[in-house]
């Protein structure tokens, strides 16, 4: 069974599938006109591969095991979330197509089933997140809710070394423009406080010797972000149309 995109199989064939004015829909009685794709940019692959989280991308041989088990693709039924395809697009450098998934790719929940099952040792989940970072850094995708959460989470833990869950919740909800009804908040707060589970503000956990370590990590974080963005602009930034 060849690997086919479900969306292509079920597409309404009354619409011609055209690319650059050439009919490539390949119905039974039509000839497929060959077409040379010129807008591929290998720099996507180079960048993803240069990142420690993305360095296994070139091992992928497109078997689709990751996608067959993917909980978003299969269980949640989000068919357009297709890690195999995302990797393919990054490998061939088809940025224009990849950008169509800008608001989908961030939804990976990091369950790691794909990494577990990949017969080639691709760290699929980390590769997908790296492709997501590429899109974000090159302006191909807006900052996603998950990006905002990752940043809020990291900033929160770097403050004291240990997460302040209540403060993270408040900060993140504010970022998304949501507010929990005061009554609900109080009820939950009381329940947590009563059982000694609310470690926020003055009750927050403290890690001895954290200040120094936290400062070093904060610097590292900034440096890493700078380096990642710089390596993109050094590579020519958003690919576009290389010969």
């Amino acid at each position: 069974m060849p690997i086919v995109e479900k969306s292509l199989v079920t597409v309404d064939r009354s619409d011609r599938l055209e690319m650059e004015g050439i009919d490539v829909s390949g119905d039974w009685n039509t000839f497929l006109r060959s077409r040379v794709q010129t807008d591929l940019d290998v720099r996507i692959l180079d960048w993803v591969r240069s990142q420690p989280q993305g360095d296994t991308i070139s091992r992928c041989w497109q078997c689709g095991t990751c996608t067959a088990g993917c909980c978003l693709h299969t269980d949640y039924g989000l068919n357009e979330f297709n890690p195999r395809y995302f990797i393919y697009l990054a490998q061939v450098g088809y940025e224009e197509e990849l950008r169509k998934y800008a608001t989908t790719i961030w939804r990976c929940v990091s369950c790691n089933k794909c990494v577990e099952r990949c017969p080639k040792g691709v760290k699929v989940e980390e590769v997908i997140h790296t492709i997501g970072s590429y899109l974000e850094f090159t302006g191909g995708a807006p900052e996603s809710p998950a990006d905002r959460f990752d940043r809020a989470y990291t900033e929160n833990l770097l403050r004291r070394g240990v997460l302040d869950e209540a403060s993270l919740f408040r900060t993140y909800e504010r970022l998304e423009g949501r507010t929990m009804p005061a009554g609900e908040m109080l009820k939950m707060g009381f329940q947590l406080l009563r059982s000694g589970r609310l470690r926020t503000g003055p009750l927050a956990h403290r890690t001895r010797g954290w200040r120094q370590f936290g400062n070093v990590l904060r610097e590292k974080l900034k440096e890493d972000e700078r380096r990642r963005r710089a390596s993109l602009s050094a590579a020519g930034g958003r690919g576009g149309h290389s010969p």
Binding site: S133, T154, L221
Partner: peptide
């Protein structure tokens, strides 16, 4: 482990590989 710190879970690695390794390594 008394003065432990947060492990970074699955969030930090999306921002920085080195920070995401240094946190649990500590």
């Amino acid at each position: 482990i008394v003065d432990y710190n947060c492990c970074g879970a699955t969030e930090v690695k999306n921002l920085s590989q080195d920070v995401s390794v240094a946190l649990p390594a500590r």
